[in-house]
Nucleic acid binder design. Sequence first.
DNA 1: CGCGGTTTTGAGCTCAGTCAACGTACGTGG
DNA 2: CCACGTACGTTGACTGAGCTCAAAACCGCG
Lengths: 224, 224
Amino acid sequence: MNCEEQRPRNDPAEVLRGLASVFSGPGATVLNVASGRVLVAQGQEVQSVYRIDRGYVRTCVYAQDGTRRIVSFCGPEAIVGVGQLNRPQWTVSVEAVTQCVVTSAPKALVNRNIETDAWVRDGAMLALQSEIEQGEAHLVMMGILPSTERVLAFLSAFAQTRSGNGFLVIPMCRRDIGDYLGLSMETVSRSFTALREAGRIELRGAEKFRLVDAPAPAVSDRAA
Amino acid sequence: MNCEEQRPRNDPAEVLRGLASVFSGPGATVLNVASGRVLVAQGQEVQSVYRIDRGYVRTCVYAQDGTRRIVSFCGPEAIVGVGQLNRPQWTVSVEAVTQCVVTSAPKALVNRNIETDAWVRDGAMLALQSEIEQGEAHLVMMGILPSTERVLAFLSAFAQTRSGNGFLVIPMCRRDIGDYLGLSMETVSRSFTALREAGRIELRGAEKFRLVDAPAPAVSDRAA
DNA sequence: CGCGGTTTTGAGCTCAGTCAACGTACGTGG
DNA sequence: CCACGTACGTTGACTGAGCTCAAAACCGCG
C-alpha cells in the first residue's frame, strides 16, 4: 500500500483517496448500523476512525443541559474522526441518521500509516483542513443569515454534494436540521413553507425537495 | 533542526513546539504590525504562515454584504495559517487587533519541514486538530448560551490563556467581541454591565476586567 | 479645552423561540 | 380491513431576547 511518492499531490480528490486507502487494507471492519444508533458517544475512548460507505451520520455535541448541537452531517465517502486521532476521548458523538454501512479502521493502524505513507499523511492533513474550512463556513452562515436563508443555504449545500437536479431525499428530520442550523424544529418547518410559497424550492411530501433556479436579478439589483 | 524521533510525542505542548521550531530557523522573517493593519486579506494567495510573538490578531471572514464574522483571536505563541497550507487562497483575513510582532515563514519551507521532520509534522497535525476542537466549542457556545453567558464564557476562556488572577486588559473592542460571539456591539456592552451588576465580574474602565469566583451553589442545586 | 472614537444607555421593534393544537404517515394488532 | 398509537411535520398565538436607531457619557490625546 505504500506507494512511495508516485501519486499526484495536487488534486484534492486524489489526495483524499490516500486517506481512504487505509479502509481497504487489512484491519478494517465493515459495520451495519441501524438508523438512530450511536456509533460512538461523546467522551468514549478513541479507538477507531470511520468511513461512511452508505447512509448518513451526524456528529453532535451535547451540552450539560442536554441540548444538542449538530456539528456536521457526513455522507458516503466521508471520513469521520481524523480530528480525534491525537485525543484520548471523542469530543463528539457520531450517530446514524439513516441506516448506514460504515468501515472502521483502528486508530493505531491509521496513525502508523500516517507515519509511514506520505500519501495517507497528505490525505489526513487535507481532511483536517477541509474540516476547518467547513467549520468556518458553518459559523459564518449561523451568524449572518436569517432563518429562511439559512435553511435554503443548507439545502443548496446538500444538493451540491449530490449529482443530478431532480428531487432529492432529505435524509435527516426537521429537528436535526434545526440543531445543525441553530434553529428550532418549528422555525425550520416554517422556513420550508416560506421557501415553497416563494417559489424558491419545490417539495414532494416532507422529505423530497428540488431547488428552483433563482430568477435573474432585476436590472436595478445588478450593480450590487 | 531535524531531531530524529528523540522528542516526546505525547506531551501536547512539546509536540506543538515542533511546529514552532520552523519559525526560529533560517527563512523566517520578523514583522512589526501596527494595530488595525491587515496582515493577509481573504482571497489573497497563500505565501506564508505566521506565528504571533507579541500582541493579538483576529482571523475573520467577510460575507458579500460586508458583514464580518470573527473566527478566532490569536495571541502570543499562536500559529496562524496551518489550515491554509494546501489552499491557493486565504479563506480568512488576518488583522492586527493590537500592535503586534509576528514571525512569518514561507509556505514552501513549512511544507518541506512537514515532509521531512516528524516532529514538525506532529505539531502541524496537532495544531489542526485543536483548531477543529476550538471551532466546535465556539459553535456550541454560539448556539446554546444566551448573550450574557456567552460574554462571560468568552472572558473566562480569555482569562485561562493568561496567568495570574488580577485584572486583565481586554485587547479587542466591543464590536470585535460581538462579531466573534454573534452579538451586536450594544448587546456585548449590556452584557458587561449586567455581569458587573450581578457581581460576576469586576471592571476597571472599559478594558480591564477580573473574574469574580462563582459562589458555591446552594445545597438544593448540588444534585444537578 | 475641545475633538474623535469608543462605550454606555434608552426606546421601540422584529425575528425566532415556546407552547399548544392539529394533521399526516406508517406500522401494529385486533 | 379498520382502529389505534406513535412519531414526525405543520400551523397558530403569544412572548421575549437581542437588534436597530439614536442620544448621551466617557476617555485618551493633541
